[in-house]
């Protein structure tokens, strides 16, 4: 595996006595997209700001493209970095095109390619309008456009899709996927795990400044240890349970006529085979991502901080 683009080793950040981030290790390899999930105040923005060098870690080591982003020589790192802040703030009196031109010059990129970039995020029609007149979704798209300037090798996106409608969200993730396929590292934060399904290669779950899980969504499902359930409808379910004890061991009756059992993933097939005739509406219920997320926050909560 090649050198990680973003590397955090034992990173901690305290604001006064409040620990915002503690003992976090994280690596984002080139060509991967990592989702950073956690509640508000879980330390996501603080981590991203440390990767940008806006905040210095209290302890640990941060490396972005092999350099310390808070050092004086980090300007070159920032040339290859794209950042979209949470609730992106842009200068309201500048037009979309002017905004992009300003940031392109700072990044030493040719201004001539900007209209194309606005086209790519679907803002070509509003290029000449002042940012102050933009809707939230349009500002967010302009924010993405500036982050895309100069084909960055690392993209740090802080809650990029909050407040976007589903259609925009889809085009947003399409652009990010393109970028990743070109070999960039993408780190995006979100407060909803479910939104990231199928869109990121790996998920890092944060809770109260600590990393509580790190892996693919498939791995997280396994780690969370929530077993799937089989549910069916059987007329006279109660009588069936009473008559055939060995078969119905472990089954419960959550509602009238309904039967439900928890089992392991590899037991499902055999369980389904020996269902009695007359079973209706058979379904296998797997934990949703929200369930998994809630499970991680419940059982793996960090020991209480002095908050």
């Amino acid at each position: 595996m090649s050198e990680p683009t973003v590397l955090l080793e034992g990173v901690a950040k305290a604001f006064g006595r409040q620990m915002a981030v503690s003992e976090v290790d994280l690596a984002v390899e080139p060509g991967t997209c990592v989702g950073l999930v956690g509640h508000n105040g879980a330390g996501k923005s603080t981590m991203i700001k440390m990767m940008l060098g806006l905040l210095r870690p209290t302890a640990g080591r941060v490396r972005v493209l092999g350099e310390d982003p808070a050092s004086r020589s980090a300007a070159n790192v920032r040339l290859a970095l794209g950042y979209l802040p949470e609730n992106v703030a842009l200068h309201p009196s500048m037009t979309g095109l002017e905004t992009l031109a300003f940031y392109a010059r700072l990044k030493r990129q040719p201004v001539a390619r900007n209209p194309e970039l606005l086209e790519r995020v679907g803002l070509a029609h509003a290029a000449g309008r002042r940012v102050g007149t933009y809707s939230k979704g349009m500002r967010q798209r302009l924010g993405l456009a500036q982050a895309l300037l100069g084909s960055p090798r690392a993209m740090l996106l802080d809650e990029p899709t909050s407040g976007l409608d589903p259609e925009l969200r889809q085009s947003f993730y399409d652009i990010i996927a393109d970028l990743r396929d070109e070999g960039a590292s993408v780190l995006l934060s979100s407060h909803a795990l479910a939104e990231l399904e199928g869109r990121v290669d790996r998920v890092v779950v944060m809770n109260q400044g600590r990393k509580v899980a790190d892996g693919t969504i498939h791995e997280l499902r396994r780690l969370a240890g929530i077993r799937p359930r089989v549910r069916l409808r059987l007329d006279g379910g109660l009588r069936a349970m009473a008559n055939g004890p060995p078969l119905w061991q472990g089954w419960s009756q959550p509602a009238r006529g309904m039967l439900e059992a928890e089992c392991d993933e590899d037991e499902i097939a055999s369980l389904l085979q020996c269902l009695p005739p007359g079973s209706q509406d058979v379904e296998v219920i797997r934990p949703s991502l929200d369930d998994i997320y809630a499970e991680f926050l419940r059982h793996r909560a960090a020991p209480g901080e002095t908050a």
Binding site: L52, R72, A75, N76, Y83, P85, L106
Partner: peptide, 14 residues
């Protein structure tokens, strides 16, 4: 305060 500084400082600007 407005949040524009964080973005500006994420650029190659001292």
């Amino acid at each position: 305060d407005r949040g524009t500084m964080a973005l500006l400082l994420a650029y190659p600007v001292a």
